[in-house]
Each structure stands twice: as C-alpha cells, then as structure tokens.
Write a protein that binds this DNA or RNA. Sequence first.
DNA 1: ATTCTTTATATCGAACTGATATATATCGGT
DNA 2: ACCGATATATATCAGTTCGATATAAAGAAT
Lengths: 178, 178
Amino acid sequence: MNVRTLCLGILTYGDASGYEIKKAFQERLSLVFDAGFGSIYPALNKLTEDGFVSCRAEAQSKRPDKKVYSITTEGQLKFLDDLQQQPAEDKFRSEALTTLLFAHLLQPRNVSELIDEIITNYEQNIDVLSKGCDIKRSHSEKFLCGFGVTVRKAAITYMQDNRHLVEAESLLSQNAAE
Amino acid sequence: MNVRTLCLGILTYGDASGYEIKKAFQERLSLVFDAGFGSIYPALNKLTEDGFVSCRAEAQSKRPDKKVYSITTEGQLKFLDDLQQQPAEDKFRSEALTTLLFAHLLQPRNVSELIDEIITNYEQNIDVLSKGCDIKRSHSEKFLCGFGVTVRKAAITYMQDNRHLVEAESLLSQNAAE
DNA sequence: ATTCTTTATATCGAACTGATATATATCGGT
DNA sequence: ACCGATATATATCAGTTCGATATAAAGAAT
C-alpha cells in the first residue's frame, strides 16, 4: 500500500484533481496515512502512464485551470487487489517522546515543560478531532476518528500518571552531576 | 531531529559500531524512532565528515572487522542543541486501519477478519513489550515501554467496542450491491 | 501596499525504506 | 554434505516520500 494505491482509493469516491486528492488525504486519511503534493503528483503521473487513471483538463473561472483524474476499470481492479494485500506493520514516530529518552541529559525543568507540551498537544489534537468526528460522512471515518481520540486520551492519562519516572531520572542525573 | 541526531544520542552512551547502533535503535528507540542500515551508515559517514564523530577500525577474531564510532565534543554539543529544538508533530501510519476506511468495498467476512488480525497483532505487540519492560535499564525506557502497552490496550478495547460500526458499513454496502 | 489564504499544478534536494550484497562463523534440520 | 537460519559486520541501491519551494490568479485582512 502506498500513495498510488490511496490516490486510486480516493478516486473510487469520484473524479478529483490533484489538489482535491490532497484535501481528501487531509480530511479523511490524515490520521492513518498522510501524503503531500510531492508524492501525490508523481503518483498520479505514474498511475496515468500505467493506465490506472485517466486525466482531462478543465478550465475554471476565477480559478487556475485544473486537471481532473478518473479511475479506470483497470485502476478499480488494482485498487481492490492492493486493498486485500497483507497490510504492513503500523509505523509510529515521535520526536517528543524520543527526547524523553534522553531526559537524563536535560534540565529537570525542561523535562517537565516538555511533558506538559506533549500533553497539551494531545489535548489540542483531541479537541480538533472531537469537533470533526460527528460530521464525518461514513461510519468507518467516525470509527477512526474515535480511535484517534481514544488512544490520545489513554496517552495523556498514562503520561500524567507516570511522568514522575522520567522527571526523577532528570533530577537524579542532575544531582549526580553536582 | 533525524537519524544523525539519534546516532549521536546513542553514542553518548558509549562508543559503538554501525551494527551496534542499529541494535540500539531496535532495542531502545524502535517504539518512537526506528532506523535501518540504509540510513544509519550514510548518517555516520556524514557525521564523521562534519567532525561530530570520529571512527577507528578494530579487528576481531571470528568476526568481521568493525568500525567503532565515538562522539566528539562538537558532536556532544550538537546533540544537546538538537535535543532542545522544538520536536515535530508525531507521525503515525497504519495500512491496516487505512484498509478499514474502505470497508464498504470489502466482503463483510474479510472486514471482520481484518479487525481480528489487527487486534491480534496489537496483543502480540503487548506481549513482546510486556516481557521487555521490566528489563529496561532506564526509567525513561520503562516509561516508553509502558506507554506502548497502554496505547495498544486502549486501541484494542476501542476496536472491540466499536467494530460493529465498520462491520455494519461493509454489510450495508454488500446488501446495497445485491 | 503588503501579507495571508485559497485554489491550482508542479518540482526539488534531502532523507528514509526495504532489499540486497559481501564476509565469516555457528547451529539445527534434512 | 548441504541448506536455511541466525549472528556479527560493513555497505549500497532504487524507489518512495517529505517538506519546502515555485508559479499563477483571486480575494480578504492588516
């Protein structure tokens, strides 16, 4: 599964321009698979070359012209096939949590502030997500939205309950340095 | 923060070869920032060029020769500086959950099986993590291990409680197609 | 007047991924 | 004896993606 697959997936909902596909990634897929223009446009070009999508140009008033992409039958088949492949393992990357691994090298005050920031950031994400969950159009989108809220809530609770472990490590190593 | 930063971070614990650095990524950082040989070796080469690490060759018996990298003072300063930069937003990617967004295109049986697999996979991850949390050497490592277990447990509970939303969507669209 | 936002297409250099290659050694299974 | 798996080692490759940037036009806000 890659950006090409998901461009096909988005086009199963209907024809769209590259810009609209990016917006669909942002609105519907960003919690689980985000992509930027730098990968979307090359993907669309490759899909077009390979016959999985077709493309027509459309002029607009007061707007730049746009290229509208449609999925072909071949593209539909490829998408369904890709969809049934064994999914890869989830991937997660967090610079903030990585920083906490080196708490012993930071000032205790900085460690506490970082933990506060992480929690605040998760809270803000929950806020934004919660506002959007109810207006999601499909059940599976609501499902994923709820998923995003749930894991962030669990993360916050865990961090509040266990922050002392990391804070103590920073304090201890500062004392040891003195 | 990138692989170069974290190679420096790992070297603050002590000298290491490229292979050992990869193992440190796997054992200590994989929950929050994983990296493979394809990025570690170029990172080490760049760090060496830039004077942030130095490198000496060591012969071994019954083992291939190894190149041992040490962090320089300059490298220490760079790592600490990088560590205090504003961390980027967390990134999460899940092909399995992405697939659920297209549940309406899958057979209901396949949707249910996929959900079961996702849950099983999280349970296995929890198993592996739980076995390792107690033998982690630092509090911050234990903290992150516990974090990984907690969010996966929350994810499992959420999925069990809400799977019917996604399963219903698949059923409904199959009925509509008939 | 300038900056920001939106709608549009597109590209670039840097970073990373996953696979692969090479080398040596050991172990277990056929 | 051979093969595959595993471990210790270094290294590279093609493909993919990221984040920034560029261009264009229009409207809104400062």
